[in-house]
Structure formats: structure tokens, C-alpha cells
Amino acid sequence: MSHSESHSESHSENPKSAYDFWERLYVPALIKGMAITTRHFLRNLWSERDDNTEVLERKTQSLMATVEYPEQRVPYPTGYRGKHRLVPREDGKPRCVACYMCATACPSQCIYIEAGEYAPSDTNTASRVIEKYPTVFMVDVLRCIVCGLCVEACPKDALRMDTSVHTSPELERKAFLYAKERLLAGEPTQHPNDPWRHRKSSDEPLHAHKEAHTRIGEDP
């Protein structure tokens, strides 16, 4: 017999067993409840208040657990998901290549992207190499549920929520549609396998001997 069965059965046999005589008298419990409230009242009234933001580490007798937010702030945990940002490359353009992975993963469908192509003659090396970029990248943060799946989905480390910043209050609905310019913020990031670090454009690199065998693993 499982636990839940025995639980319900014992109650159906003797429904009054949950409360004994003292509990059914109520008055002692009422008085005790008031005593508890008064104890809290006096303790909080009489003892000094400790406003350490780590509530569990507060030292004094006072039981007040309040953290007064704008002045005091609890440090965010390391995994905190803040405002979205588009990670810039070293040259200030977004790392994003408009692969739509974030928009695909987004359960609230709050990301909208339109893709464009960098011209083969672009003056920027990285742009010449990666070809594709978002002409429009919008996050509707009112729709966003801050699940972070877009960050997980991003194959290019181009979208992060590491800002530890909340979505700021706005007066207009349209101000919550974050466009590319607003999203592009924070420290530029580069990775060793970024394609533009290995070639100058999307053309074939000029080898002295194209046919000379470059084995896989060797730098051509």
C-alpha cells in the first residue's frame, strides 16, 4: 500500500483525528497567535536593524528581511539574464550573421531579423568574409519572456544577456522594440575560430602553388 493511500484511508476512518481537543478549543491558539505577533513586534521595534543585503548574514535580533531596492541592491547571481545585447566585433559591427537561430528558438517569437549581404568589395575585412548580416534586428522586449534560449541558440556568440541590467521602464510601447543600434553594446568579443581571422575575403586565397599539397592540419 502506498503512502498516499494509507494517508487518505486513515482520514476516512477517523476524520477528527487531525485536530485534538486543545486545537479544537481555538482560544489558546488564538492567544498564542497574538503572542507570536507581539513577539515579532517587540523584537523588531526594540533591536537595531541590520541592513546587510545578504539577508541571511544579518547579525542583529531584528527579523526585518527588507532590502530597500534602489539604494540597496542584492548582487545578481552569475547566471542572471539581463537585457539583450548584440555583441560587437572588434570593428564595432555586430558579430551577428542573421542565421535566425535565435528567432527560431524564441518561444515567444519576439525576435525579428532581416538579412542583408555585405558587398564583396566591402572595405571591412570581417564583413567581406562573413557575407551576411542583419539589416534589421529587433527584439520586442515586452514579448520577451527572458528565457535565454536565444543566447543558447546563437552559434556565433553574437547575442548575450550578460548585462545584469533590467529592461528599463519606458513611456511608449514602441520604445520597447529594441532595434539593432540599441542592442549593439558592450565589450567587443573575438574568438580564435572567427573566420575573418583566417582569410581576407570570401575569395579564394592566393597560393603560390595551388596544387602543392597542403595537408589537412597544415596552414596553407
Binding site: E131, H198, R199, D203, E204, P205, I216, G217, D219, P220
Partner: peptide, 22 residues
């Protein structure tokens, strides 16, 4: 695999309709 891959032309325009990434 680690290390670089063979690099070819990634944006070769073959004709009016088709573009090739070799």
C-alpha cells in the same frame, strides 16, 4: 579535426541565377 581547412572561393558568381560556394 583541428587546424585550418582548405580555403576556396565562397562567393563565385557562376551566372545570372546561380552563385557558388566552392
Amino acid at each position: 579535426l583541428w587546424g585550418p581547412k582548405v580555403q576556396k572561393n565562397k562567393r563565385k558568381v557562376l551566372g545570372p541565377t546561380v552563385l557558388m560556394d566552392q
